[in-house]
């Protein structure tokens, strides 16, 4: 019986993830927008800095995460976009399984979009900003993944709030950016240490990022129950 119950919960998670990916495949209105924004930022900075590689070196990790932050806001802002017109969230809530799995599924899809964007956009940053790769792949991927997870944890929670209020889309960045400052600082510093010549020690920053991720993962799971009745 317990086994059946567990399968039921896992099923709810996978069905929502599959449905969200199908909707994205059908509409292409989240990922394409995020990628277009990041590519635009890369080109703007590439033209602004010209061929001055040393100047870019100083600010590279900041530019990288600035682009990911704003592209991420575009992405998480649309987390519940497809649920809104016909109140499909009610249908998901009524379906068997704990409602927490809706949140976990939404966070996971948002993470896939954000991390996928980082993976695709990173080579473009290095190529177009004329930066040689000197870092460690494992540490760099860890920084990208932990940064993305920290971002979408709170992002999906605030997106649910913003979806239910008037002018929510304008409200989301105002609420989200201050809360993401610790994630951004640690992610930027970790990336800077990874890409430094000679390489610095990013692990302290990555551990800090992991700590924020745990908090930012727990926070939505605790608070979502109160959100359902908003």
């Amino acid at each position: 019986m317990a086994q059946q119950g567990r399968h039921r919960f896992i099923r709810k998670f996978w069905v929502i993830v599959g449905k969200d990916l199908l909707l994205e495949l059908r509409t292409k209105d989240t990922w394409v927008g995020m990628l277009a924004f990041v590519v635009m930022v890369i080109f703007l900075f590439a033209f602004a800095f010209g061929t001055d590689r040393s100047q870019v070196r100083q600010t590279f990790s900041g530019i990288l995460w600035l682009a990911f932050l704003f592209a991420g806001i575009l992405g998480v802002g649309r987390t519940y976009h497809h649920e809104m017109p016909e109140e499909a969230l009610v249908g998901l809530m009524l379906a068997p399984g704990e409602r927490t799995w809706i949140v976990v599924a939404k966070m996971s899809v948002a993470f896939c979009f954000m991390f996928g964007l980082e993976l695709v956009a990173s080579p473009l940053f290095f190529i177009l900003l004329n930066q040689p790769w000197t870092g460690r792949w494992a540490a760099y991927l860890a920084a990208l993944a932990l940064g993305a997870w920290g971002f979408v944890g709170v992002g999906t929670l605030l997106s649910a709030l913003a979806a239910n209020v008037r002018s929510g889309e304008a409200l989301l960045p105002l609420l989200l950016v201050p809360l993401e400052i610790p994630v951004l600082i640690t992610a930027v510093e970790a990336t800077r240490a990874i890409l430094a010549t000679p390489p610095g020690n990013p692990w302290g920053w990555l551990e800090g990022l992991l700590a924020y991720d745990v908090i930012f993962l727990a926070l939505p799971l605790v608070l979502y129950d109160y959100l359902w009745e908003v």
Binding site: L23, E86, G91
Partner: peptide, 15 residues
């Protein structure tokens, strides 16, 4: 075992 038919369809316009 509970089914609800509301004012909205609870469905997805793009599907």
């Amino acid at each position: 075992r509970v089914g609800l038919v509301g004012h909205q369809s609870f469905l997805y316009p793009a599907l």
